[in-house]
Amino acid sequence: MSDDQGFTRDEMMTVAAARLLTNETVCFVGIGLPSAAANLARLTRAPDVVLIYESGTIATKPDVLPLSIGDGELAETARTVVSVPEMFRYWLQGGRIDVGFLGAAQIDRWGNINTSVIGEYHTPKVRLPGGGGAPEIATNTGEVYVILRQSKRTFVDHLDFVTSLGGGPRREGLKIPGKGPTKLITDLGVLEPDPETGELTLVALHKGSTVEQAVAATGWPLKVADTVVETEAPTPDELSVLRDLNARTAKAHAGDA
């Protein structure tokens, strides 16, 4: 997919993810791609969506995307700001969140996520930041949406470390309050867990992407649904709101002093 369609893959991914949120959703938002998608939803189809960031900001409505999870903008535009222990205990563990919206460094076919290490744990090749709030967001929200650019580097056959739980065999025998990952939105399409096995399966392709591209960008033999639907291209309104948001954000982050 290229600019000759009038939008980029990243824009399509963000728009597709934003369309999943509604005015009734209470959403726990990760920083980066999830935050862009969640705020796009709020600025287009779902003005009443409740966005919560782990820094303690509840029902926040930032005008620019935060660079960090605790930018002042999030606090100033929030309905209320609570302490971090309260956030994790009452709001997340207390079962008040419908959707956890996460990014990832690596994901496997079950939706397990690694954001800790690449290589052997004690002598890693790459030390990643770690899980932050994600391990409990992944299990204590009603369901989880993951947004991640698709490539063999990120969609891997084997994770060196499971930082956050997905679906599939690892869930067996565990009492998990939430459903876990129900959607994986990529720059090529959308994957959903197979209802029987839990394995992530390609169910939608964004306009301009092909099954072959998706298979080539996946580090395991990708399951493809019998019927793969095409995602509707971004509307002019979705694109202009997203581009304005990104432009405001870039300007704000370059100039903060």
């Binding site: 205990r89 391990p135 409990e136 499971v162 739980l165 690892r170 565990l174 009492k175």
Partner: peptide, 9 residues
């Protein structure tokens, strides 16, 4: 707390 469900930590 209710945590570390299914993770490697």
């Amino acid at each position: 707390f209710r945590g570390y469900l299914g993770t490697d930590h």
